[in-house]
């Protein structure tokens, strides 16, 4: 089954992900549930942005899923890049949105092959650069 809610993923979401992963065409992508709550759709794909731009965009409206092409320095090994996946479901969301986004996460997460870091974000500190960097450094 695609997810615990039965919500599905539109194919377009995967195409944009491939372009981020293989062609480095985008810095980040935002996804959301469509208005009928039937599938996850693309909201926006951004070519150039800083991490701060991304976080302020991610956290400025309700719940979202996102991928970000995360660059960082690994001491002694130089520049590294990893794809981070975010489920952003802030604690002040409506309970219906929390339920929907949490129970539908697998519909997108399981289809994104090549994600190295997964972030379950419910407040700003969990999606901060430091928090993600820490996860990036811990994973291989």
């Amino acid at each position: 089954m695609s997810s615990s809610s039965g919500v599905d993923l539109s194919e377009e979401c995967l195409e944009f992900f491939q372009d981020l992963k293989l062609k480095k065409k985008y810095k980040y992508i935002l996804y959301k549930l469509d208005d009928s709550y039937k599938s996850i759709v693309l909201e926006k794909a951004v070519e150039e942005a800083t991490y701060d731009d991304f976080v302020s965009e991610l956290t400025s409206s309700g719940p979202r899923y996102a991928v970000y092409d995360f660059d960082y320095e690994k001491p002694g090994e130089g520049q590294r890049s990893k794809i981070a996946f975010y489920s952003w479901i802030p604690d002040d969301s409506k309970v219906k949105d929390k339920m929907l986004y949490a129970s539908s996460k697998d519909a997108i997460r399981k289809r994104l092959v090549g994600v190295a870091i997964e972030i379950q974000g419910t407040d700003l500190s969990e999606v901060s650069y430091e928090a993600v960097l820490e996860k990036a450094s811990r994973s291989n």
């Binding site: 719940p63 929390k98 949490a102 129970s103 996460k105 997460r109 379950q120 419910t122």
Partner: peptide, 28 residues
């Protein structure tokens, strides 16, 4: 309870009437 809290991954501590339980939930 985990989904309703917006968390596919969580430990759910439920203290009700007859029992107290802690249950880890990972990706639902």
């Amino acid at each position: 309870s985990a989904f309703a809290a917006g968390r596919p991954t969580a430990v759910v501590m439920d203290c009700g009437a007859s029992s107290t339980s802690c249950v880890p939930v990972v990706d639902g």
